[in-house]
C-alpha cells in the first residue's frame, strides 16, 4: 500500500508539473517520470507485461518522438507577454478544461463507487505472465503475428516512397 501511494503521488505530482512548466522540454521529461510511476502501478497490479510495454513504448519511443518534435520546432520557451505574466496553471483554457475534466472524473468516480455491486460486463481478468503471453502469441496467434510483419513491411515501403528525395532526372 505504501508503494501504491508513493507511485500514485509521483504520478500525480509529475503530471501537475507537466502542465505547470514554462519550458516544453521540462514538460516532456516530467511526462516520462509520470509514465514511469504509472508503470510502477501496473507492476503492483500484477501486470508486468503492461508495465514493461508502458516503459518501452510510452516512456521510450513516444516521448523521444515528442522531444524530437519540440527540438525541431525549436521552441524551448514560450515567451510572449501573456506567457510570462500568467502562470501556465492559471490560464483561462487550462482552467476551464481542467474544471470540465474534474467534473467528469468526479461523476465517473461516483458512478463507479455506486456500481461496484454490479457484475462487470467483462470476463474476469486473469494474471498474465510475459511467458504465457509469448506462448499464446506464437501458438494461437502465430498467423496474426506473421500478418503483422507484412503490415509493417508495407508501412515501411510506403514511408520510404513518400519520404524519398527524387533526384532530378534520376532513375526511372
Amino acid at each position: 500500500m505504501t508503494l501504491f501511494y508513493l507511485f500514485a503521488a509521483i504520478a500525480v505530482l509529475a503530471s501537475l508539473l507537466v502542465v505547470a512548466q514554462h519550458n516544453p522540454v521540462y514538460s516532456v521529461m516530467l511526462l516520462i517520470a509520470s509514465f514511469g510511476a504509472l508503470s510502477g502501478l501496473y507492476v503492483l497490479l500484477d501486470a508486468p507485461f503492461v508495465a514493461v510495454i508502458q516503459i518501452i513504448v510510452y516512456a521510450g519511443a513516444i516521448m523521444v518522438l515528442f522531444l524530437f518534435v519540440v527540438m525541431l520546432l525549436n521552441a524551448p520557451r514560450e515567451d510572449t507577454d501573456y506567457d510570462i505574466r500568467v502562470h501556465p496553471l492559471f490560464r483561462r483554457g487550462p482552467l476551464w478544461f481542467g474544471a470540465a475534466l474534474a467534473v467528469c472524473l468526479a461523476a465517473e468516480l461516483a458512478w463507479a463507487l455506486g456500481a461496484t455491486r454490479m457484475r462487470s460486463g467483462f470476463p474476469a481478468a486473469q494474471m498474465v505472465s510475459v511467458e504465457t503471453l509469448g506462448h499464446r502469441l506464437f501458438t494461437d496467434y502465430a498467423f496474426q503475428f506473421e500478418v503483422t510483419s507484412v503490415l509493417i513491411l508495407v508501412a515501411m515501403i510506403g514511408a520510404v516512397i513518400m519520404a524519398r528525395h527524387d533526384e532530378p532526372g534520376g532513375k526511372q
Binding site: F143, Q144, V147, L151, I157, G158
Partner: peptide, 21 residues
Amino acid sequence: DLIVIFLALEVLSIGVYVLTG
C-alpha cells in the same frame, strides 16, 4: 477472425494510401 480482418484491412489501406499519394 476479427484481428485478421483488421490486419488485412490495414495492409490494404496503407498500400492504397501510398498509391493515392
